[in-house]
Design a protein around this nucleic acid. Structure first.
Length: 273
DNA sequence: AGGCAGGTTCTTA
DNA sequence: TAAGAACCTGCC
């Protein structure tokens, strides 16, 4: 157990920002994070102080990167135009949002599943998949049982009924197809990080069940391409009602980060609904 | 209780 | 090239 001072960071805002599906409330005000086959418990002591259930070394080698703590979000926020009232408000409501550096494979499958699903429903599916096909994570506390996100091989060999039981619906074949291609080596997600953002998105969209929105989410959340702007129903509403059809081009470079503030604020306040 | 959910694909002109 | 229907199922 360690304590750290972390600025511009709110585990709650991040957990509810829709970019990740495996950060859940642990009960005593703490949050449980599952990633990289590891489990982390994190609890806010005050606005800038956090208690984390890991060693100092694990924090530095795993979680510091995962939470993107070496990035100065003040730089991204500075890209917001001064007279853009909507974005300025959105930023002040979500100061603690960061773009996590999650695993491409997990992002690909999670966002394939996300289509036509609510966030709670996505969480349920991802959790069931992990319980069924993921490796059990060892924890000191025997009470919380936790499973890693399944490996490609595990999903590639799964039968239809098992996958359907995870609530995948018509997405079963999309998921299994991506898993097989990855397990058999036809799709090398780590190699895709060599591509520039446009090529990366094109390549991802060659997969069944991956359209522009899912590919953009994978690029942003799995490959940390901050210049990617996933446009979902919420962002569509924001762009139309607030920005008259187009975001300022000044926002392009950090569109993914700024989008996250806008998206969060839009959902909180039901902008455009 | 029944519509809708952070979309994508397939079909039709 | 573009618009429209169909798609599984869980959640509110």
């Amino acid at each position: 157990m360690i304590t750290r001072t972390i600025k511009d960071f709110s585990i709650e805002d991040i957990a509810e920002s829709g970019q990740c599906f495996r950060i859940v409330r642990a009960g005593d005000g703490a949050w449980q994070v599952t990633a990289f086959g590891r489990l982390l418990r994190i609890k806010a002591l005050d606005a800038e102080h956090y208690e984390l259930s890991c060693s100092s070394e694990e924090f530095d080698t795993v979680w510091r990167t995962y939470f993107d703590l070496d990035a100065d979000y003040g730089v991204y926020r500075a890209a917001a135009l001064k007279d853009d009232e909507y974005l300025q408000r959105a930023i002040s409501c979500g100061q603690g949002i960061r773009i996590l550096r999650q695993e491409p494979w997990e992002m690909l499958i999670s966002f394939i599943i996300s289509q036509r699903k609510s966030v709670p429903a996505i969480r349920t599916s991802v959790e069931r998949l992990s319980e069924r096909f993921g490796i059990r994570i060892d924890t000191d506390a025997s009470d919380d049982i936790c499973y890693a996100f399944p490996a490609p091989e595990a999903l590639a060999g799964a039968d239809t009924a098992e996958l359907a039981a995870c609530g995948l619906g018509y997405r079963v074949d999309y998921v299994r197809n991506a898993a097989r291609l990855t397990a058999e080596g036809f799709l090398d997600l780590s190699l895709l990080s060599e591509l520039d953002t446009a090529e990366l998105i094109d390549r991802l969209m060659q997969l069944k069940g991956v359209g522009i929105k899912v590919a953009s989410c994978v690029a942003l959340f799995g490959y940390h391409r901050l210049d990617t702007l996933p446009v979902d129903v919420w962002m569509k509403r924001v762009i139309e009602t607030v920005y008259k059809g187009e975001l300022p081009k000044e926002y392009l470079q950090y569109a993914g980060v700024l989008q996250q503030y806008m998206f969060n604020y839009a959902r909180l306040n039901k902008v455009g609904v």
